[in-house]
Amino acid sequence: MRRFSLWLRGKPFVADSLLAGTLFLFDAIAFVGNSEMRSWPLYILVAVAVSVPVAWRRRHPRIVAASVLTASLFSSLAGMAVGESTNLHPSLLALPIMLYTLVVYVGRRDAAIYLVALTGDAIVALLAFGQEPISAVLFTVLMYALAWVAAEFLGARRAYDEAVEARLAVAEYDRDRRAEEAVAMERTRIARELHDVIAHGVSVMVVQADGASYAIRKDPDRAEQAVANISATGRQALAELRRTVALLRTNPYVDDMPLYGTAGLAKVVDMMSRAGLNVEIEQTGNLDDISPAISLGIHRLVQESLTNVLRHGGHAPRARVSVVRRDEDVLVEIVNNGVGVSTSTVQGTGNGLLGMRERVAVLQGTLEAGPAEDGHWRVRAELPLE
């Protein structure tokens, strides 16, 4: 039964057609029980005129309301003409039904006008059929009052349901938007991690390969060392890539993965030194007990900055790295102290600096990148500890 009710709720015309058929059935039962009725064609005509339009009450409420009221007036006047005071139609319950429909689907103004017309129709019916005024008036008033109150209650319920549906729609949209933002942030994070790993290793390998090609004939020992550095850098980049993929598949800051910290910075500096970059590093404070997110951020900032110095630092690239843990934040500063013009064939895309800015923004920190007062390029970041 509940399924049938839900099915009817989605098919209003079918429900209204069943209602119209029920009203006509009431008239048919009354007709069968009244053996003294002489004007049965008139009775059937009125029954059809009152009940059938109800099937379209929600599609054309004003037209159906006027039609039912007209049929009721015609029934009263025709009953007076033929002199049959028993010519009453149970299907005239369509009158309060149409009042209810006007209140719910049209508005109170049209319903109030219709109520005034119903009052006139009730007066005509009293005169036509000679009913007791008090009982007839009380019944009519009660019937129309119940129809109006029910309509007001249902209208309030519908307004509440519409408000709930609107809020659900907004919540669903917000959920979808948050999901899209989460996907976009995840894509950005993956792109940033892969860029930091691959661009760093490949850049070092390209620089070493260029150096080996220059020295392969004049200084074979130096070329051999450069090739060894390329091999070591490639293996390290591959290991770092595998580690990054493992992190991205699970949690980017899981506890069983080694943190970067002091040892990680020393490893980056050692690799860059073997690649030909003269690096000085200064670490102040305990950098091994800070959160993994901050530790990873420091590592990537130093790694990317030193890679850029190696690529664009000229013939004698030099850099100074300073990582200072303070009371409320960690200060990371990388300064390019080299001179000369770079002869590297590696061209930058700007993604490195963009990735650093995104990473620092995620960590709620600040980043400054640009030429310092002495003309050297400087990257300075402040990463809050909490």
Rank of each mutant, 00 (worst) to 15 (best):
R222P: 00
D219H: 12
T119D: 03
M205F: 01
G201D: 01
R167L: 11
Y100T: 08
L69D: 05
H89F: 10
R380Q: 15
T250R: 15
V268N: 13
A237K: 00
A179F: 00
A128S: 15
H315S: 15
W148H: 08
D329E: 14
D121M: 10
V324T: 15
A381L: 07
V269Y: 06
I134V: 15
G352L: 01
L93M: 15
R274D: 14
T244H: 06
R175I: 06
A184Q: 03
A125Q: 06
H200P: 01
V197S: 10
A381C: 06
D255G: 00
V302N: 09
S75K: 10
T244M: 13
E84T: 00
M37P: 05
G120A: 12
H195Q: 11
F13G: 05
L248W: 08
I134Y: 14
P133L: 15
T70R: 01
A232D: 05
M205V: 09
A199F: 02
F13R: 12
A182M: 14
N351S: 11
S342F: 07
P41M: 11
D374H: 05
S39T: 02
G21P: 03
A94R: 04
A246W: 05
P258R: 03
D289R: 11
L23T: 13
L247T: 11
L194F: 09
A125T: 09
T343R: 11
S72C: 06
I290K: 07
L296I: 10
A319E: 06
D210H: 08
E280N: 15
G314D: 14
S35G: 05
N336K: 00
M257D: 04
L247F: 04
Y105D: 15
